[in-house]
């Protein structure tokens, strides 16, 4: 299933890396983006592993090179990530920088979109308001002469950091 997810995500232009430890994944983040980055909410283990990183303030989000976030689930059939981004500031953090890096636990990869229905429904109704982003590959357009061009308004690079061996 991980291999299927990886193939589908790469087919739409995502960079996929598989890590056996959170620390290795954190090192990849530092190496890819430098020290000051934007972030949406992260689980404690990942936040701790990223101790070498300075998380920027909301007003800086538009100028930072990268952002890290955490996916609730991955969809193997399409290489999609389900991101719970109900907070507008966190959402902006994932939408503005040119590089978006997303942690995904291997155990959270499910086969296809229909099998995600229950999870999406409960995420939608579990809080007073919610905003979910199902993200597949980097931002793209084909609006000029139908030539596929990556990175128009959203991130130009999407890196998926799969955490295995938990």
């Amino acid at each position: 299933m991980i291999a299927r997810f990886q193939a589908a995500a790469e087919a739409v232009g995502a960079v996929v890396r598989r890590f056996s430890s959170v620390a290795d994944a954190a090192a990849y983040v530092l190496q890819t983006s430098g020290h000051a980055i934007a972030a949406s909410h992260l689980p404690d283990d990942i936040r701790r592993a990223l101790s070498g990183v300075t998380f920027t303030q909301p007003e800086e989000h538009r100028d930072v090179p990268a952002c890290v976030s955490f996916a609730t689930a991955g969809v193997a059939a399409t290489g999609s990530l389900l991101l719970e981004l109900s907070d507008a500031v966190e959402r902006g953090a994932t939408a503005l920088p040119p590089i978006h890096m997303v942690f995904l636990r291997a155990s959270a990869i499910i086969p296809d979109l229909p099998s995600l229905t229950g999870a999406i429904d409960s995420l939608l109704s579990s809080r007073p308001h919610s905003y979910l982003s199902l993200t597949t590959g980097p931002s793209r357009t084909a609006d000029i002469e139908r030539v596929l061009t990556i990175g128009v308004h959203g991130p130009k690079e999407l890196h998926i950091l799969i955490l295995e061996g938990e």
């Binding site: 739409v12 999609s80 109900s86 907070d87 507008a88 979109l113 919610s130 905003y131 982003s133 980097p138």
Partner: peptide, 20 residues
Amino acid sequence: ATGQKITSYVSLIRGPSEGH
């Protein structure tokens, strides 16, 4: 529409975000 399995972003929005 475009021969894509899914688009880059599918946003599901329920209610306004905090402060919006």
